[in-house]
Structure formats: C-alpha cells, structure tokens
Design a protein around this nucleic acid. Structure first.
Lengths: 151, 151
DNA sequence: TATTGTTATACTCTATAACTATA
DNA sequence: TATAGTTATAGAGTATAACAATA
C-alpha cells in the first residue's frame, strides 16, 4: 500500500473525478444490463459475440478476442458455448488453414435479433423518457466510449 | 456524428439504435476496464464494493446487494473475499441483531485509494486528450447512465 | 520459428436452494 | 411469519500454461 504516495494534484482533480464517475457509471449500468438477462439465455459475453457475428459477418477467433480484449483461449471457450447451442459454426479458412472463421447460423441470427429486442426493452423505455438533448448527449457519449475502448 | 440528429423525428429507428449502441459501448468499455486489472488484485465486483465502503462509509449487506442489483447471497460471497483479504470487517448491528454492517479497514481504505489511482491511469490519460466539450458530454452522460442504472 | 487456435485448470462473479438467527 | 444473512452447489466468464497444426 505504498502507492498511497501517489497523490492527486489539485489542478487535475476535475478530470480525475470524471474518470472515477465514468468508471462507476459504466460498471453499474453493465451490472444492471446483466441482471436483466432472462433465465436460460446466453450470457453477456456470448451474446456480445453473437451480436457481432450477426451484424458484421464472419470473423476469425483472433479478431474476436482482440475486439473484447480477451485472451484467444477465453474467446475459444465463449465460442464453444455458441457452437454447442447451434448458434454459430466454425469454418476452416481455405487459404490459411490455421485460421478459423466464426459465423452465425440461421438460428443464431434469429436469437441475436430476439435477444436484442427483449433485453433492450427496458433501456429503450428509459431512453424515450429523456429529452432529445439528453439522447443526443448519450449518442455522442456512446461514440466517445467506443473510441476509448478501442484505444 | 449523430449529435446532429437533435430534434429530428424522435420516436422511430434512431432511439432504437441508440439503445443498442449504448449497450455495446458500455459492454465493451466495461470489459476494457476489467482487462486492465493488475495481477493478484481484487476483481471488479469486490473492488466496486470496497470503493463504495471507502467513499460512503459502512453499509448493510442488503443495501450493498441492492445497489449492484445482485442477490444477497452473491454479495455475501463478494464480501467474504474482502474480509478474507483483511480489507473489510463485519459488525453486528446492536439494535437489530439480524443486520450486518460492512466497513472498510485501514488497509481496505488504502487499497481502494491505490487501486483507483492505478486502474484509472489509462482512462484519465484518454480523457485528458479529449476536448473540454467532449469531457462535458461524458460528465453529463455519466449522470444520465447512473440515473438509468438506478431506475 | 512464428502464428492460430485448442484444451486443462483455476479463480471471480453470479444465481438458486436450503439453512440459521433474529424480529 | 417475515426479514437479514450465510453456506452449498453450479454455471458463465476469464486467465495462464501447455499443446497441436499450419505458415
């Protein structure tokens, strides 16, 4: 606990506080999202991968693991849950046979659509209650947060 | 930049899409936060609880589980990790002996301070790179996201 | 040798069910 | 009976280490 010595300088207090507030808000909202999961459905990591395959088409395992900053080993296991459920398939790349392309199956696409509709219902309801200005702020914030996650 | 859509046709596809974009951004950033965890440190759930005890003082178990929308059983186990590490203590409420008050220990407070400094370093760096306008947007967005998580 | 992916193992986080203790 | 909390058990998600296959 010697790191206590790292004090926050007065001049940087505001943005320091923004970091803490942002982290807390993202953490709480993420856990809230997770708590909305209906029984027997895919977990959040698997659904995020399936949604990506649904929206952006086939991807290699390494690409998927890079996107979520997760180890390839971890992503391989998440993909196992999708293939076991019949929502995705592995295809060997013909040109570079080390690579594996993941694709959503027909039922995978259907599940991705349905899950989004169900799981975002309560979020959409809350967004509709906001002013157009606040929605615009959140739209811009979503872009900024994605950019930060990408960096 | 979707922010230009202010005042245009609220009620249709745009806010629908906002929900999906917001969920994706929050999910990706949360996983990014989690990937920054140094080896041997507390997990994100345990650190979130410790940070809360550090900032807001002693709380009952039920209160903590309500804040993170987690079952009391789950929170009890998260608290077990904190007490095992010596970062928090349980105290029986004298007036209602069913209740348990959780408090951060001295080393718990120190860890909360240190962990915040270490884990937010890269986030603070990215926030400093933004324009004051974008930081203001994120500050307001943090409030909105907290309010949504609370609702 | 380097890259791509997998399996084995272990830890965190979460849930439900069954339980104790107190009100 | 109702409330506050715990323990037991199981599943999702993650990591590292060790491995195989291909380039």
């Amino acid at each position: 606990m010697r790191i206590e010595a790292i004090g926050q300088l007065p001049g940087t207090a505001e943005e320091d506080e923004l970091g803490g507030l942002l982290r807390a808000a993202v953490g709480r909202l993420y856990r809230r999202f997770r708590s909305e999961r209906p029984d027997g459905e895919l977990g959040d990591a698997a659904l995020a991968v399936l949604t990506r395959l649904h929206k952006h088409g086939p991807q290699t395992l390494t690409a998927l693991s890079g996107i979520d900053r997760v180890s390839p080993a971890s992503m391989s296991q998440t993909v196992n849950r999708l293939t076991s459920a019949g929502y995705a398939v592995r295809t060997r790349d013909a040109e570079d046979r080390r690579k594996v392309l993941l694709s959503a199956t027909d039922s995978g696409h259907a599940v991705a659509r349905a899950a989004r509709a169900k799981r975002n219902a309560w979020l959409d309801e809350r967004l509709r209650a906001l002013s157009p200005e606040d929605r615009a702020i959140l739209a811009r914030a979503a872009e900024l947060l994605e950019a930060i996650a990408d960096s």
